[in-house]
Design a protein around this nucleic acid. Structure first.
Lengths: 330, 330
DNA sequence: CTGAAAGCGCTTACAG
DNA sequence: CTGAAAGCGCTTACAG
């Protein structure tokens, strides 16, 4: 272990220039005379200097750290989006602080406070901030806040997502057009899944269908719930012809259990998922699902952050939409 | 948006004390007279002061930021461990910078450099640093480095994990004891999966079995590969009686495809996974797998970091072991 | 193109 | 128990 990390001063002394010049070279090489640049480069090499970004952040009041707050990562529908986001942000010189808020978002306020204390450049939320007090703090903090994966009617700052209600409505239309008559909903206990269910039910009934039956499952949803959900169907007064699942995992589990029970999907029972995980396209039968373009969300978030940093105008409400992916299961 | 964030000075002025006293109150309330503490608390309240941890980090040369470097998070065997790690670390006042290094760890050096520049307190690696130059830089950086999920023979600093070779050997013993005779290996193209395969093969042959057949799949491994792997079995000169999969996802896909082909698991073909995902216990049939205690790894990492911070002695090589979980599939 | 100096917002050893 | 002052390692407006 070295005695002490070399500083800008050490490089400057060795290169025979001032610290200011080394700093300029690091941040904008073109502004320094090329001969000077060569000497500085050599000095950096010789000293093994590594720029201290934390000190730079303090000096510029710009940390280039973005906080991403998600409920969990073990098995999350957001993982694709978060991964794309980290990659996009990293490609632009940012680092991402990932904070876990828990399934019920219990830790949301705590993690928001931490992010604020760290003076991150922006906070990206996947969960919904329901406490009015926290929403207010966020607004008055003068920090960039991006709400993703939803389209709040009263956004805190920037929103990049889609309407969950619209997803439900679209699925209702889709299944009705395919001739299904008795849908059953498996609904995770989350605000957004609830919105999709509401959208579905409203539309379905509006179009003259009977009110769909439903059951709820805990979040995060998983494979095992799908199996249980299939078995729970037996308790229904009338059997559904299609099950609309809150996630592809639930759909997959339901299909496996149906097969094991000798029920053929989709001939005897159709199944729809949500999230369009890679597995949905690989499953047997392949799973009809709803695709959300996580990479697109990530790009739009980065674009908004850049525009704000540059002081350029940009849309603060970006609806990236969604697509129903029709496959074999429904 | 406020004009400017309040600083320690603002709080101090309002409370009628010096900035130093406010700082002490924030970091160790007990050291301040209680009457003073009350005034400071009121001033903090009134100004809406939020401690700037970034400035504090610069002053103390301790960032309380830990960098976690993982190949991906979309579908990673490390997710459980990383999640547990983030929770453990957060409970101790740290924040976690999550950096993605890519499936082949192409970005490892780049992200290590970024972490070094951010002056994180520690770097937690899940991938293997193969470049000797980077290993050397890490050693001489005087930073805490934790290698997890493996037991390197020449660790950079601290290692918390288990022997992948031992996993392979144990699986060979386990399957032999169960009477299987012709194993086939589906091996992800990663150093560790390769070590497990080597351990398995060595032990299997040593115990008098025929050399196992094998095929390779790309990382990150996924469900679809399992289906393809089952079909590829048809090309084998002799059919295996058990398939040892590099992950539970592969195992699951293989089972689904086998069922679809009318091959019963485990009667006609046994299957073993790796990782003991929650889904493994929920699948039909339930999947025999290898459990790695991610939460335990997380706890040991935190314990080591704390011991080092406190200057106390601790083990730098911690083998958390693993467990073969016998279920229905093999 | 470059330097001296002030400032980013804290913490802490020293002194009282 | 508390304050004045130096320091953490950068950046940048100002001046030349």
């Amino acid at each position: 272990m070295a005695n002490r990390n070399p500083r800008l001063d050490d490089v400057a002394a060795m290169a025979g220039v001032s610290a200011a010049t080394v700093s300029r070279f690091l941040n904008n090489p073109a502004v320094v005379a090329s001969a000077t640049g060569v000497r500085i480069r050599e000095a950096i090499e010789a000293t093994g200097y590594v720029q201290n970004l934390a000190a730079g952040a303090l000096a510029t009041s710009r940390s280039r750290i973005i906080a991403a707050l998600v409920p969990d990562i073990a098995q999350s529908i957001f993982n694709d989006t978060v991964e794309a986001m980290i990659e996009e942000l990293a490609s632009d010189g940012n680092s991402v602080m990932l904070a876990l808020t828990g399934a019920d978002n219990r830790g949301l306020t705590r993690e928001i406070n931490m992010a604020l204390a760290r003076r991150v450049d922006a906070i990206i939320l996947t969960g919904i901030v329901s406490e009015p007090e926290t929403r207010q703090r966020l607004r008055s903090a003068g920090i960039t806040v991006v709400e993703t994966w939803g389209m709040p009617e009263d956004p805190i700052d920037i929103a990049v997502g889609f309407s969950h209600r619209a997803v439900g409505e679209e699925l209702a239309r889709f299944l009705r057009a395919r001739g299904y008559r008795r849908p059953h909903l498996v609904v995770p206990r989350s605000t957004r899944a609830e919105r999709r269910a509401t959208g579905f039910t409203t539309r379905w009934v509006h179009d003259g269908g009977p009110s769909p039956t439903r059951m709820e499952v805990n979040v995060p949803s998983h494979f095992g719930q799908g199996r249980l959900s299939f078995r729970a169907l037996a308790d229904l007064p009338e059997q559904p012809d299609v099950v609309v699942c809150g996630s592809d995992w639930i759909a997959q589990g339901l299909i496996v259990e149906a097969n094991a029970a000798g029920v053929r999907v989709p001939d005897q029972l159709a199944v729809v998922g949500f999230g369009n995980l890679r597995m949905a396209g690989d499953m047997r039968p392949t799973i009809t699902s709803v695709d959300v373009d996580g990479a697109r969300i990530a790009r739009e978030v980065l674009r908004a952050l850049r525009a704000r940093a540059a002081g350029e105008p940009f849309d603060t409400m970006i609806d990236v939409g969604f697509r129903v992916i029709a496959r074999e299961s429904a």
